[in-house]
Amino acid sequence: MEKLVLIVHILTALAIIALILMQQGKGASAGASFGAGASQTVFGSEGGGNFFTRATAVFAFVFFCTSFGLAIIAKNSAGVTDVAIPSMIESAPAESDVPAADESSDVPSMGSAEDDVPAVPVQ
């Protein structure tokens, strides 16, 4: 059942893309008002705008329904229930991969700032 809904979903998405790409923009009707080949269209002198608009709306509705159906199928197969999110389980802090710094390190200390900087500039 899930595969069938997924196939319908993909085909509907491709149909929506194709229908949107085939539609004319709003500025295309300005040339048609002056008789720029409007009588030679496949869908008549009105054009195919109304047909493509309605077909896009139908396919968008089918796409919405298949999206909703796929969400329900995914929820049922995952076994998710409608209970609240469980609280975080308290546990001991995990050990870090970074080793702790020891005092007997070979790295010299920075020292105090007073040792390196003279109080009065040298001239």
Score class of each variant (00 low, 15 high):
residue 83 V to C: 07
residue 24 Q to S: 04
residue 106 D to L: 12
residue 98 V to R: 07
residue 41 T to E: 03
residue 46 E to C: 03
residue 14 L to Y: 07
residue 5 V to E: 01
residue 72 I to T: 10
residue 94 A to T: 11
residue 2 E to M: 07
residue 17 I to C: 00
residue 105 S to M: 06
residue 56 T to K: 03
residue 36 A to D: 06
residue 100 A to S: 10
residue 37 G to M: 14
residue 68 F to L: 15
residue 39 S to T: 12
residue 38 A to E: 05
residue 97 D to A: 15
residue 23 Q to L: 04
residue 7 I to Y: 10
residue 97 D to S: 14
residue 113 A to C: 06
residue 75 K to H: 11
residue 67 S to H: 02
residue 45 S to G: 06
residue 101 A to N: 05
residue 117 V to R: 10
residue 74 A to G: 08
residue 16 I to V: 14
residue 62 V to P: 00
residue 72 I to S: 08
residue 99 P to D: 04
residue 107 V to P: 00
residue 122 V to C: 02
residue 27 G to P: 01
residue 24 Q to C: 03
residue 75 K to R: 15
residue 6 L to I: 03
residue 40 Q to W: 05
residue 22 M to P: 01
residue 105 S to C: 03
residue 62 V to K: 00
residue 71 A to I: 11
residue 42 V to D: 04
residue 95 E to W: 09
residue 115 D to C: 00
residue 17 I to V: 04
residue 94 A to M: 13
residue 98 V to K: 07
residue 67 S to N: 11
residue 38 A to P: 02
residue 20 I to E: 01
residue 88 M to D: 12
residue 53 T to V: 04
residue 119 A to V: 09
residue 63 F to H: 10
residue 115 D to F: 00
residue 108 P to H: 02
residue 93 P to K: 08
residue 91 S to L: 09
residue 60 A to T: 05
residue 93 P to M: 07
residue 2 E to D: 02
residue 116 D to S: 08
residue 8 V to A: 00
residue 74 A to Q: 07
residue 40 Q to C: 05
residue 71 A to S: 13
residue 69 G to V: 00
residue 121 P to C: 11
residue 119 A to H: 05
residue 120 V to N: 05
residue 101 A to W: 13
residue 81 T to R: 07
residue 2 E to P: 01
residue 65 C to A: 15
residue 101 A to F: 15
residue 112 S to V: 09
residue 8 V to I: 11
residue 77 S to I: 09
residue 36 A to F: 14
residue 49 G to I: 08
residue 63 F to W: 11
residue 1 M to H: 14
residue 93 P to Q: 11
residue 45 S to Y: 14
residue 34 F to Q: 00
